[in-house]
């Protein structure tokens, strides 16, 4: 308010009074900010949600050439047990043909830097507009590159999950994962 700059009628030492006012106002502002935090923090992921932030998957039952879909953080994750042919095809593609150049090796390395070309683990969400591509289940259209094919707008991915054709700008994302043993992988 404009006229609040005019000192209110009252006696006392104006300096002391100003100091008191400023100190009280400052403390009040600190308090208001401290009160605001729990209200904001309340909307952050809860402990039970965070507890599911990583999952452990046993990959032994997945035969060569098969793939499974697991749910992780509310999204599908594709785990494909690739054949020798899949791997060879993926490694043979020249970088110049890729809209989002990445080597196949870099896409099959876990957080301990161990490369396991037979296991391709990706988030199954098309990088175009978030649809789930086809090709993970037997009998589904794997698209022209033998990988995955997004039915929404026709993006096609190769056997390394890299974008080859269509509107999607990026390769299918690789989550952080770690093989705890040859059969058990932790995602997240």
């Amino acid at each position: 308010m404009a006229s609040s700059s005019v000192p209110a009628d009252g006696h006392g030492d104006p300096t002391r009074r100003d100091f008191l006012m400023v100190a009280t106002g400052a403390l009040g502002a600190v308090g208001a900010a401290a009160v605001a935090w729990p209200f904001i923090n309340n909307l952050n992921p809860a402990a039970d949600t965070l507890a599911l932030a990583s999952i452990e998957v046993n990959v032994t039952p997945i035969e060569v050439g098969q793939a499974i879909t697991v749910k992780w953080r509310g999204k599908p994750v594709f785990i494909r047990h690739r054949t020798e042919k899949d791997i060879k095809e993926a490694e043979a593609v020249p970088m110049s043909e890729l809209p989002d150049p990445q080597t196949d090796n870099s896409r099959v390395t876990d957080t301990a830097k161990k490369v396991r070309p037979e296991w391709l683990i990706m988030i199954g969400v098309c990088t175009h507009l978030g649809c789930v591509p086809l090709g993970n289940l037997p009998g589904q259209d794997k698209g022209p590159y033998g990988g995955w094919y997004c039915p929404c707008h026709g993006s096609a991915y190769d056997t390394s999950g890299r974008i080859r054709k269509g509107p999607a700008p990026l390769n299918l994302a690789i989550p952080q994962y770690l093989f705890l043993s040859d059969s058990l992988v932790r995602i997240g």
């Binding site: 009252g10 002391r16 009074r17 008191l20 009280t24 403390l27």
Partner: peptide
């Protein structure tokens, strides 16, 4: 502790304001 400090300051301010 915070509220006690704030109450003390508020009381001082209130007394100052009302002193006349």
């Amino acid at each position: 502790l915070f509220l006690l400090a704030l109450a003390g300051l508020m009381y001082a301010v209130k007394r100052q304001v009302w002193s006349n």
